[in-house]
């Protein structure tokens, strides 16, 4: 569904961030993008919704090439891509509800959005999503009054209210503690399965990525050096991506009886269970 072909990005400073990258993401597929800092992970997902303009290559979400789109088409294409940020990127001085509804801006005219007169179906959906991420009691709080995990939940709701086809997720857990990180990753993966959403998740935490996703893409210096299931990520592969290091203990020790978490999440997708899993 998302087709990235020969994407190259060279910053005006001369740094080559992406070097001829090609990836295809299928509908409903959640992939983790791993690699050392500066490998081009952030640049890659920012190219997809063109927060940065790639130097060469093509990106297709369904149909037209995003790289060549005009302003209006680009705005319409961005509505179909929800983005989740490392530092949450909520508008700190707006309320939780306003932040969630800002995900609807692509669908609502300027004056309606200025006067906060969002269409009732959008407001209903916002309440539903806030309930789903476990924040229905926080609707009127200002974003800067929330904890890190709560902010990221608002960020997730803001991305989902766009009703996107794909989520672009940039280091969702890098500012969170280990427990919250797992909850947030689980929530993102669950929601993707629930809605048949594809996702590209940039992530530093390799064990966490291996726990939750079915496909991992490894980037090094702007090139793809691994693309396959978490199982295939051997010590040798990790060395190829990150450089020489003792990798023992990185992979969840191959416990064959225990199905990986992403499969458990997929199996558990049924509304009542989800309500419970989403709590905490």
């Amino acid at each position: 569904m998302l087709q990235i072909d020969n994407l190259t990005m060279r910053y005006p400073t001369g740094d080559l961030a992406l070097d001829d990258v090609s990836v295809a993401v299928e509908r409903g597929q959640v992939i983790a993008l791993i690699g050392p800092s500066g490998a081009g992970k952030s640049t890659l997902i920012r190219c997809v919704n063109r927060l940065v303009q790639p130097s060469a290559g093509a990106i297709r979400l369904g149909g037209e090439d995003i790289v060549k789109m005009g302003v209006g088409d680009l705005r319409r294409a961005r509505r179909r891509m929800g983005m989740i940020f490392q530092e949450y990127a909520l508008v700190e001085r707006l309320s939780v509800m306003e932040n969630v509804l800002s995900g609807q801006l692509g669908y609502v005219g300027f004056w309606r959005s200025l006067l906060r007169r969002f269409p009732q179906p959008a407001v209903d959906e916002a309440f539903r999503l806030l309930g789903r991420v476990g924040l229905d009691h926080m609707v009127d709080k200002r974003a800067d009054a929330l904890s890190g995990g709560q902010r990221q939940r608002v960020g997730i709701a803001r991305a989902l209210i766009q009703n996107p086809d794909i989520l672009l997720v940039d280091e969702p857990t890098a500012s969170l503690d280990p427990k919250t990180s797992r909850q947030i990753m689980r929530l993102i993966v669950e929601l993707c399965h629930e809605r048949g959403l594809a996702a590209i998740i940039n992530i530093h935490d390799v064990p966490l990525a291996m726990m939750f996703v079915e496909r991992i893409v490894g980037l090094r210096a702007g090139r793809i050096v691994y693309d396959g299931p978490p199982k295939g990520l051997t010590d040798q592969r990790l060395t190829e991506i990150y450089g020489e290091e003792d990798w023992s203990g990185t992979r969840a020790e191959d416990d064959e009886d225990e199905p990986p978490a992403h499969r458990k999440v997929a199996a558990a997708v049924g509304p009542p269970e989800l309500q419970k899993a989403a709590g905490a």
Binding site: N49, L51, V91, G106, F110
Partner: peptide
């Protein structure tokens, strides 16, 4: 903070909406 502005831009908002949602609350 430019990331808050980016987040609003990434939703497909028009420039005027980016101004009123992403920038104005920050300078208010």
């Amino acid at each position: 903070d430019e990331t808050q502005v980016e987040a609003i831009r990434a939703t497909g908002a028009q420039p005027t909406q980016v101004l009123s949602y992403g920038i104005w609350p920050q300078v208010l």
